[in-house]
Nucleic acid binder design. Sequence first.
DNA 1: TTTAGCACTCATTGATAAAGAGTGCTAACA
DNA 2: TGTTAGCACTCTTTATCAATGAGTGCTAAA
Lengths: 340, 340
Amino acid sequence: MLTNRQLQVLQVIIDEFIHSAQPIGSRAIAKKNEITFSPATIRNEMADLEEMGFIEKTHTSSGRVPSEKGYRFYVDHLISPFQLSQGEMNTIQRTFEKEMVEFEQIVQKSAGILSDLTNYTSIVLGPGVFDTTLKQIQIVSMSNISAVAILITNTGHIEHRFFNVPAGIKTSDLEKLVNILNDRLVGVPIIELREKLYGEVTILLKQHSDDFATTYSYLKEALLEEQPVKLYVGGKTNIMMQPEFKDINKIQSLYTIMEQEDLIANLLRSSDKGIQVSIGHENKLDEMQGCSLITATYSLGGEQMGTIALLGPTRMEYSRVISVLNVLSRRLSKTFHSWY
Amino acid sequence: MLTNRQLQVLQVIIDEFIHSAQPIGSRAIAKKNEITFSPATIRNEMADLEEMGFIEKTHTSSGRVPSEKGYRFYVDHLISPFQLSQGEMNTIQRTFEKEMVEFEQIVQKSAGILSDLTNYTSIVLGPGVFDTTLKQIQIVSMSNISAVAILITNTGHIEHRFFNVPAGIKTSDLEKLVNILNDRLVGVPIIELREKLYGEVTILLKQHSDDFATTYSYLKEALLEEQPVKLYVGGKTNIMMQPEFKDINKIQSLYTIMEQEDLIANLLRSSDKGIQVSIGHENKLDEMQGCSLITATYSLGGEQMGTIALLGPTRMEYSRVISVLNVLSRRLSKTFHSWY
DNA sequence: TTTAGCACTCATTGATAAAGAGTGCTAACA
DNA sequence: TGTTAGCACTCTTTATCAATGAGTGCTAAA
């Protein structure tokens, strides 16, 4: 549909605009080495490209700027694979070589790398409960009336929940309770926990004293509490360096939306496998107009575990960002794979 | 040193400026009810106040603006106690009434209240290790080569540290180890942990096998890891609403400094008991020029536990902020007191 | 001692002009 | 017939200038 020459022109416009953030005129395009035709010819092509909706003018006599449709086309057809420099690869390598035994830590580090390497804002969604199973439950009594349950999953994730204990419950009772729970629950996938706790285990505990049942009901509640999602954001201030965000109101609305972790977490969680690019209006959130969000998933044994993402202006270094995400998501998958 | 009339004028200037963020002229001052003298008189007084350094002009024929010295004087001598509205008191009350069993939770909520109530940015330093003692250590084996130690303090704070386990160590060995540790360490103040671990316990464990000693050395390292400080920041975007921060660079440098949690934590930790006000240059950090930081401490049984703070422009609603901090720090102290 | 009056200063605003970048169209060219 | 040079035109940006208005400092009168 597009002629070869139009493709060339479009590519130059977007490449240039991504780096300069300035509208590109026909003269500037003609100066490029790979362009062998005159500004007048380019103007004709640009008129066509504009008619097709790939580029826009900021005013009647301005140079051209890519439209969102233009970016979409660029991402789908024009970007060339980007090679990270040896130095950058080394940085990543070194970070992952450091012995890390903790899930959270590695995920957090990744957020840092992403934003440092791209100068955009990174968002990393920690591994979900997808195929994690319960490894152990422990209960520690804190006082006469309260105790804390500690949940440990096979992925090394640890959580604790406080709960109330009825008066008169002895430590030995708690121990008995925790033994029963461990008996029944170790190895159970987290997502099936609710079902087990309400079914099987409840029935089993019916045989015991009332106090026991009350304790269990408190504990059950604590165990089933929705845990706030873990979201790691890196390079939050990077966004302020982009000229399209020199306006404080834009920044403020973006920051405000980013503080709603649930929202962002859901956004990332629902992202499809592999690299996904959402440009401007393709994002559902109004606050993200003018932004692009690029996501990549990481996985363990084919099972999708979490998502890493970069947020920047629609005028984004797509090819660079995509390869950084690619490298890092593979790296993450590999690391997790080597653990389990 | 200052005449009554000068005090009055100074007070009006600062009060007004705090609310309008605009230089105040003599005419505007004369219009105030409590002012009974003419603009010309006020101009004379203002000239004097300026000479003494309490107020400044933005240019030769502008109205006056408080200087930092002016704010300092205002805070020390002029502010009148401020009463929170009944509604605001209720908000606080309601938040604290909700049953909260967790340290972190209550501290985090406090940060939220502070920023909501003042429209500034709140920073809350969670309770330090000051007089917390170890309640229990648990160890859970994660794989052949790694395990996790879980530390529980008497204040309900829970932490976990991963560590490597030499090949050949059995679960029963770990149990033995943890029993020894609990025997020796329960009730020990966290700040003495290092000493104990290196002294007494190391000696005690010398008797056991080499494997045991190796395991212990890994574990010891993990236990003594510096834990990153817990800092809760609320209403980060509030700062963007202040007209003095319409400049994106200023915002960026402030955000960047606030991301250095260690720095901020140290700043707060070193703050003196009670309410402390640092105005503009009184702050040590360059990035905080033009800002005021007001801190309040909360305590348990006379022992200082942590700090809550509000950060805003030097043009801050001091009287309101101070009373909010007062109310909240007392409330926090009270809550913690009722727990232990 | 206080205040009215007045000249003066400076920021802000709007209007106007000049410069410059870029376009679209037309006509000439290969 | 596709390509290009030329040119009139549009629109932004920047500078300059004048008018307005808020506010001051000083002087002299009350």
